[in-house]
Write a protein that binds this DNA or RNA. Structure first.
Length: 285
DNA sequence: AAGTAGAGGGATTTGAGCAC
DNA sequence: GTGCTCAAATCCCTCTACTT
């Protein structure tokens, strides 16, 4: 095998067997200076599948020289040290690269969702903790990164639903939920179920509902949640129903379809929830 | 808009099988 | 008997599709 430099490499040992003696200086090459500048780089073809793009030298594990002869014990121990360091650098690089990738994914998703910088910081911390606790083994980096972001949003009090986060992630909703539960449990994040009231301002502003409708929706949520109506129900559906009910009560009516759209639940869910809520409010008043 | 049936999915409970 | 794992059963919620 020959490198781009023309050096002959021993197939098994990977050691250089024969150096290309010819100086291919620039002045007599076929392409001139400007052509040379056009080429961003020269040399061996690179591959994206390896972190070093396949350019680094590999020291193999045989104690033979380029000619296949055994080498002295002094050389052997020197080779051993070199290999050890190469392995250390290689694995360290791989870990760093994965972390870099995860953090850039978190950043990308956070930007796409428009969440503040503090959430990204928290997500990064959660991801690093998951890495330290060895929770990523057997799971995808993207999955853990996405669930770290999901957890961070909830922890910072600006929750995003699994639907919303799976829209910007390459990982599907089910996987995010599963990984999130696992990470949250293992790291003892102690995140409480999302308060539906947290969704009210965002959904309301998307629906362009005035302040007093929001307060009414919050009131409905508080009263009905006290009566145990929230238990086991999805917070987004609950919030959507309360907003719908509030819009009716305040004569600022939005259709179930509109509310369902911004909350990413179905109209059926809104119907079921809001009737329970209205009933409970009736009993309450 | 409202209602209904049925499908599908997640979480929890129950029960069988196994090792100690 | 106790503790554990794993699969099946069950419950509840949300969804789609359809009708009124």
């Amino acid at each position: 095998m020959r490198t781009a430099d023309g050096d002959l490499i021993h197939e098994e040992t990977g050691l250089v067997v024969e150096e290309d003696q010819i100086d291919r200086g620039p002045e007599w090459r076929a392409f001139n200076h400007t052509e040379r500048q056009k080429k961003s780089r020269v040399g061996a073809p690179t591959t994206q599948t390896m972190h070093d793009k396949g350019l680094t030298t590999t020291i193999d594990w045989k104690d033979k020289d380029a000619y296949g002869r055994s080498i002295s014990s002094e050389k052997r121990s020197q080779m051993h040290r070199l290999r050890k360091w190469q392995e250390r650098i290689r694995t360290k690089d791989a870990g760093e690269r994965n972390l870099q990738f995860a953090l850039s994914e978190i950043d990308r998703m956070a930007s796409a969702m428009g969440v503040p910088h503090s959430v990204r910081e928290v997500a990064s911390v959660i991801y690093r903790r998951a890495l330290d606790e060895d929770l990523i083994r057997g799971r995808s980096i993207e999955g853990v990164a996405t669930s770290a972001l999901y957890a961070a949003c909830r922890q910072e009090g600006i929750p995003r639903s699994l639907e919303e986060i799976s829209d910007v992630s390459r990982v599907e909703r089910k996987e995010i939920g599963r990984t999130y539960r696992y990470v949250s449990q293992e790291l003892a994040l102690g995140i409480k179920p999302v308060d539906p009231k947290k969704y009210v301002p965002r959904f309301s502003s998307e629906l362009e509902l005035p302040e007093h409708v929001q307060s009414k929706a919050n009131e409905i949520i508080e009263t009905t949640a006290e009566q145990g109506l929230l238990s086991g129900k999805s917070p987004t559906g609950f919030a959507a129903a309360a907003i719908y009910a509030a819009s009716l009560l305040c004569n600022e009516k939005k259709t179930q379809r509109e509310v369902a759209g911004v909350a990413q639940v179905t109209e059926v869910t809104i119907r079921n929830r809001y009737q329970e809520q209205i009933e409970a409010m009736g009993v309450h008043n």
